[in-house]
Computed example of a mutant assay.
Amino acid sequence: MASYLVTGCSRGLGLALITRLATLPKTEVGTIIATARQDNSVRLTEIASASSGRVQMVKLDVTNESSVKEAVLAVEHQLQGKGLDYLVNNAGVSDWSPTGLEGMDNLNETFNVNVTAPHLVSRAFLPLLRKGDKKTVVNISTTLGSIAMADAFRALPTPAYKITKAALNMLTVQYAQQYADDGFTFLGISPGWLRTDLGSRRADLPVEVGAEKVLDTIQKATPEQNGKLVNIHVPGWETREGPNQYDGKEIPW
C-alpha cells in the first residue's frame, strides 16, 4: 500500500487527484494526505469523512516555511512510523497579462508559488520520503514551460506562468541529479489543458481525465525517467492538430 501526499487539494487538479486516489483499492493506495492552505473545502472534507480515515487533511501553506515544517510533523504522526512513498507538488498559480511582458507585474509572487514552494516542500519531506518504498516526487508542470515548444504557445499571454514552470523543470532536474544515487525519482508531469479555474471551460480535457492519467503516469514511473518532463497519455489525442497532443512521451525542453 503506497502513501501519497498532494499539495493544493482544495480545488482543481489537486482535488481531482485526491478524489481519484480515494477510489483505488486499498491494496494499491494506503494513506492519502490531502493538503491545502485553507481547510474550508466542503468537497475535500466530504471525501475525507467518507474514507474511514484513509484520507487525512493537513493544513499547508506551501509558501510559508513554518507551515511546511508543521505539516511535516503532522504527516509524520499520521504515517505512524512509516515513510512517504509519493509526494505530488501540485499547488500552483498562473497569470494573465494581455500586454505581455510590459504588464507582467507578479513574477516574484508567481515564482514563489510555482518554484520556491516545491523546493521548500520537497526539501522538508525528504526524511519521510527516504523511509518510503517508492521515493518518488512529482512536480506538476506544463508544456508551456518547455523552451523548445515556446513558439507554439507564443500567443498565450501568461509570461510569468511560462517562466516559472521552465524554472520548475530545472528544479526537477537538480533534485533528480542530486538524489539519484539515493534511489529517488523526481519527475515533471504535464497534466494537459484541463477544465479547471486555472485552465478555463475551453480546455481540452475534464479535470477527472487529467487526474486519472496523471496517476497512471506516476504509478508507472521508473528510475530511468528521473529528471524528465513527461506528457500524460490520452487515447485519441496522440496526433491531434495544434500544440496539444497527449501521447505519454517525454516533452522536449
Results as ranks from 00 to 15, higher is better:
Y4T: 01
Y4G: 00
L5R: 02
V6W: 11
C9L: 12
G12N: 01
L15I: 02
A16K: 01
L17D: 05
I18E: 03
P25I: 05
P25R: 08
K26I: 10
T27K: 11
V29R: 01
G30Q: 08
T31S: 08
T31R: 04
I32A: 04
V42Q: 09
T45R: 14
E46H: 13
E46C: 12
I47G: 07
I47C: 09
S52T: 10
G53C: 06
Q56Y: 10
M57Q: 15
K59L: 14
K59Y: 14
L60A: 06
D61V: 03
V72D: 00
L73F: 15
L73Q: 15
E76N: 09
L79H: 00
Q80K: 12
G81W: 12
D85A: 00
D85F: 00
L87N: 02
L87I: 09
V88A: 01
N89C: 00
A91F: 02
S94M: 13
D95K: 09
T99I: 11
L101E: 06
N108T: 11
T110Y: 08
F111D: 04
N112W: 00
N114C: 14
V115Y: 08
T116F: 02
P118Y: 05
H119R: 12
L120A: 10
V121M: 04
A124Y: 07
L129R: 05
R130P: 05
G132W: 01
K134H: 10
T136S: 13
T136G: 07
N139Y: 03
N139E: 02
I140G: 00
S141E: 03
A148M: 14
A148E: 15
A150P: 02
A152P: 11
A152V: 04
F153C: 04
A155H: 06
T158W: 07
T158K: 10
A160K: 13
K165M: 10
K165R: 12
A167I: 13
L168G: 03
N169W: 09
N169V: 12
Q174D: 15
Q174W: 15
Y175V: 06
Q178R: 10
A180T: 03
F186M: 05
L187E: 05
G188Y: 02
I189G: 05
S190Y: 10
G192I: 07
W193S: 04
R195I: 09
D197K: 10
G199R: 11
G199L: 11
S200R: 14
R202G: 13
A203N: 03
P206R: 05
P206L: 09
V207F: 03
V207M: 09
E208I: 13
E208F: 08
E208A: 13
E208D: 15
E208Y: 13
E208H: 09
V209E: 03
V209Q: 05
G210K: 06
A211E: 04
E212Y: 09
E212H: 07
K213N: 06
K213P: 05
V214T: 08
L215N: 14
D216H: 07
Q225H: 13
N226T: 14
G227C: 06
K228S: 15
V230M: 11
V230L: 12
N231R: 02
V234W: 02
W237Q: 10
W237N: 04
E241Y: 09
E241I: 14
E241D: 15
G242N: 01
G242T: 02
Q245D: 12
Y246L: 07
D247P: 04
G248N: 11
K249C: 11
I251S: 05
P252M: 05
